[in-house]
Each structure stands twice: as C-alpha cells, then as structure tokens.
Design a protein around this nucleic acid. Structure first.
Lengths: 182, 182
DNA sequence: CGCTTTGGTCAGCATTGTTGACGCTTCTCC
DNA sequence: GGAGAAGCGTCAACAATGCTGACCAAAGCG
C-alpha cells in the first residue's frame, strides 16, 4: 500500500527461511500482501465448501454433517470424545448432527472393547457412499487447483496452512496423516 | 492411501506445470493428499478466524461484522450492491450487520455523487481503529506463517488458493489488489 | 463404595444465512 | 413527462450451527 513492487509475488528468488533474510525477501510481509491473504482465505474457503453444501442441502443436512462424515470416515472407530476434540465444538452441537446421521443409517456406533463406555463411530456402507460423493465434489476442485499450481506450490500451500493453525490442529493433522499410511 | 511416498511433499523437484508432467510429479494428487487438503482448509480457516472472533464477541459482534468492516475498509466508497456481490449474501443478511455498524458509528454512508440512489460506504475513524485492531490480530498469524514458510511457499499458497475459488472470487481479488496500488 | 470419565439429553439463546413480499427514491429511456 | 427499472431498506419467518447450564446413566477405577 505504501511501497511498490508489482509482480514481486512471482520472483523465484531466495528460498532461505527467516535467518539472514534480506529486506527484499520480506516484501511479501507488506500490509497489502497480508490483506490479500485474508481475502484468499475467505473466498477460497467459501468456494471450496460450496459444492458439498449444495448436495448436503438437498438432503436436509449442513456443513456440520459433512465434517462428522469426513472425520469418522478418516478415523473409523473414533470415539465421541476424540471427534469433539477434533471439531472443537460442544457435545450438544455434535449431538445435534450425529444423532440424525446415526438414525438415518450413515454412521454406526459400537461399544468399545476395552472401555464399554465408549461408542466407537464408523461409517456404514451408506455413509461411505455418501461421504465419497461429497469428497469427489471437492476432489475435483483441489485436483484442478493443485495441478494448475504445480507440486512446489502445493508444498508451499501446505506449509503456510500449517503455519496458520494452532498446535492442537497441527497435532491432529499429524495424527490423521499417520493413520492413513499404516 | 494406496501407494506409499513418505516425505514426497518435501521434494524440490520439477516445477513444470501440467504439460508433460511425469507420474512421479502427480503423486501429490493421491487421495491421501487431497484428504489432507480438506483438513488443512478446515483447521486453517477455523484457527485463522478465531482471534478476531473473540474480540468481536466482546462487542456483541460476529464474523459477518468483520467481513463488512474489512471490505468497506479495503474499498472506501463501495456501494451496497458491490458489497453484496463480494460477500455473496442477501440484502437482508447484510442489512442485519450493516445497520448496527452504521448506528454505532463504525461505518458511514454518503449518497453517490453521480447516482444519488447509491449509499457509498466507508469507515469512520472509529471503524478504522476497530478494523485495524482486528487486522493486527490476524496480521501476526499470517506474518508468522509466511515468514516460517518462506517467500516461495507464500507464492505457492496464493496460487493454490486462487485455484480453489471460482471466477467471480478471482475477479474480485484482482480488483481488490488493483485498488490498493493506485 | 465413592469418584471420575464418557456419553446423552433437554431447554434456551445468538449469529448468520435463507425466501418472500413490499415500499421509497432515483435514474433511464421512450 | 411518465413508465419501468435499478438501488436500497425493511418486515416476517425459517434453518443451520454454534453456545451455556443443568442433569442423568453407565462404566471404570482406586
């Protein structure tokens, strides 16, 4: 907004992080660049969720249902407590979407083997099918964005996004990534 | 989820986009990588908005108020119609947050010079101060993430985010970037 | 046997999105 | 100049998804 550096964003220069970075390297921290980040996150997140939202609406569901289906699908046998931690919402908020999902046969619950208080959640066949449908919707969007941006951009995207979130979320991401490559 | 390529994300190889990309280059399009993207966006967006949300709550406001303050601040003299297009919400939804912001002296409206039907919106001193406070909150988060990730990662982040959003949002982003470097 | 943990539930409230309908002012075009 | 369109505001009702507070039941644990 004050200094001028058109196209600076395209410079393929220094890769060094932090230590010893020149003033030139830090141009991307100007106010205008940070404002842009706000916009990117707002528009990006909104458009990214738009597809599933539409499908969900047809079945009388919302984004919260998708999140439950996603994380139950990602971690079959997850406990209610873990799900609450991941979503960072209250028991009541979760109950309102989880209960219908169970009643309508998308999610099933089994008592824990070691701890019978627990209700281990997993997707039914119907739940898997539906979750996949929602996923395919976003898959296309991400694939296009990733392919157009290229592998290095994707890696950069990941680094920035992880930097944006707090330690809790970063921990969950680590766990989720681990769990998917057994 | 099916193939295995630990640490692939860190490979600094080919930069070529799309055309002629090898199978190796496209490993980042595996299902697990796309699932990860879903998680990154969910956690990232949530944690990114958490700071302002807290401040806003103390004043009886919500995220919607922040968005209005942000875009009015970004485009002083914006019309109600433009704001509606950017936010992609209904007139009624906007009215509910805009009206209180005007009454409480955060936003002021002046009749358009050429078209007197228009109400050109801009931030009052009070509005600017408050918006800046919210911005500072996110500024720190973004700056840390950007600095830790490095300039190339930031560029990648931008490319991917722009790829995620639709043409409308991309158009608005272009306009907003232009308007800030007059 | 008591205490804690895990999970469920009821009641009420706030934010923010939606539709539909109606009114006022102002611009534009014939 | 008058008709219709455009820009904006507003009332009413509804839906999704957060929240708090309170209370209950079953199971684990010392």
């Amino acid at each position: 907004m004050l200094t001028k550096a058109p196209g600076m964003a395209a410079m393929p220069e220094s890769t060094r992080l932090g230590t010893g970075a020149s003033a030139r390297d830090l141009l991307f921290l100007r106010e205008a660049e940070l404002r842009l980040a706000q916009d990117l996150l707002f528009f990006g997140y909104r458009d990214f969720t738009a597809g599933p939202d539409q499908i969900l609406a047809e079945l009388g569901m919302g984004r919260a249902h998708h999140r439950v289906l996603h994380y139950v699908g990602r971690r079959p046998g997850i406990t209610v407590g873990e799900l609450l931690s991941i979503l960072a919402i209250t028991k009541q908020s979760l109950g309102r979407v989880l209960q219908p999902l169970i009643e309508d046969g998308y999610v099933m619950q089994n008592p824990g083997r070691h701890d019978k208080r627990q209700r281990l959640l997993s997707l039914t066949e119907k739940g898997q099918t539906f979750e996949r449908r929602l996923f395919e919707c976003q898959r296309e969007v991400i694939m296009r964005a990733y392919r157009e941006a290229g592998p290095q951009a994707v890696e950069g995207f990941r680094r920035v996004m992880r930097g944006l979130m707090g330690p809790d979320a970063n921990g969950w991401i680590d766990q989720l990534e681990k769990g998917c490559q057994p």
